[in-house]
């Protein structure tokens, strides 16, 4: 595919976005040349003093008006459909993805891998493998942009957003914050390191101190006293619902609605438990908003997720 100078095509999406860009450029150039060409042609031909025929100038022409309106629709709508289907594809991640957690905060990117390895303003990831960034902000809105991949997603406080892509080239690619987030917004940049898959595995396991995210969550779970109400096996009855197998399940709420227990739901259940009460339970769970930060929440969610599987194995999201 055509390569634009100064910018790598380093993801599966990049080439397609560039192609769309070139098609849009083609259409636009056509219209710019058409309009400016006609303006110049008429301008010269009908300039004051020229002897051009000016008899019976038309006042209006319905056929022409409808014609160019339809022509615009015929040109525009396919572009819309193409761009929209590409967007749909780029927004909905495939099933077998590698999840990497990203925390945005004024003014740095903190990256947490599932095995507990952390990095600041750097993201290491494998080439030719779909990766999903699971992102949240600790303060204001940020936006993670990797120009060489042509992908971007705002990172919001209070809610997870995700960004997925598949890198197709190894190397180092800049990462920038695109949403204005305060004084050092322009400094909120970093580097994406795309590695061969084997190198990536080695890099990941190189984390000497490694307590996995789920294990950290397990520790928090007991330290915060969650286990007082949430029992971990089906024999014991707790005051709170059993969290085994919760992740990904459909939960019936007190008001009769249902909701899928995803990361956002579990996060809300911990920081704002009164917002959604599980049917059949008393609203007695206290909020933990002041005792946990976004890192702890990621760990807790990762732990609860690991419980999704009866045998408690860490499955990854």
């Amino acid at each position: 595919m055509i390569h634009l100078p100064g910018l790598n095509q380093a993801s599966t999406a990049a080439g397609q976005v560039d192609l769309l860009f070139l098609v849009l450029l083609g259409i636009s150039s056509f219209f710019v040349l058409l309009v400016s060409g006609l303006l110049i042609y008429f301008g010269v031909k009908y300039r004051h003093g020229s002897s051009a025929d000016r008899s019976n100038p038309p006042a209006t022409n319905n056929f022409l008006e409808i014609g160019w309106t339809v022509a615009l629709l015929v040109i525009g709508l396919p572009v819309f459909v193409w761009a929209a289907s590409m967007y749909f594809h780029d927004e909905v991640p495939p099933n077998n993805v590698l999840v990497i957690n990203v925390l945005g905060k004024q003014w740095m990117w903190e990256v947490v891998h599932d095995n507990g390895r952390r990095e600041i303003n750097e993201i290491h990831l494998p080439v030719n493998y779909p990766v999903k960034l699971h992102m949240i902000s600790q303060d204001v809105i940020h936006s993670l942009w990797i120009p060489d991949f042509r992908v971007k997603q705002d990172v919001l406080p209070g809610r997870y957003t995700t960004l997925w892509f598949e890198a197709t080239e190894t190397g180092e690619f800049p990462l920038r914050c695109a949403e204005y987030c305060g004084t050092q917004h322009s400094g909120m940049t970093g580097t994406v390191f795309v590695m061969e898959q084997a190198d990536y595995q080695a890099w990941l396991e190189n984390a000497a101190q490694g307590t996995s995210l789920a294990a950290q969550g397990e520790q928090l779970f007991s330290r915060l006293g969650c286990a007082a109400c949430h029992k971990l096996n089906e024999q014991e009855d707790g005051r709170g619902p059993l969290l085994l197998g919760l992740y990904g399940r459909t939960v019936l709420l007190e008001d009769g609605t249902t909701i899928t227990a995803d990361a956002d739901y579990i996060r809300r259940s911990i920081v704002d438990p009164q917002a959604q009460i599980v049917a059949g339970y008393e609203p007695i769970m206290p909020t933990f908003a002041n005792q946990v930060d976004e890192q702890d929440l990621l760990a807790l969610i990762s732990y609860i997720q690991s419980l999704a599987n009866e045998d408690g194995a860490n499955q990854g999201k």
Binding site: A13, V17, L24, A84, D90, K152, A178, Y180
Partner: peptide, 10 residues
């Protein structure tokens, strides 16, 4: 155009 805007937004 949606997927184009994803890249150039902001």
């Amino acid at each position: 155009s949606l997927s184009f805007d994803v890249h150039v937004h902001d």
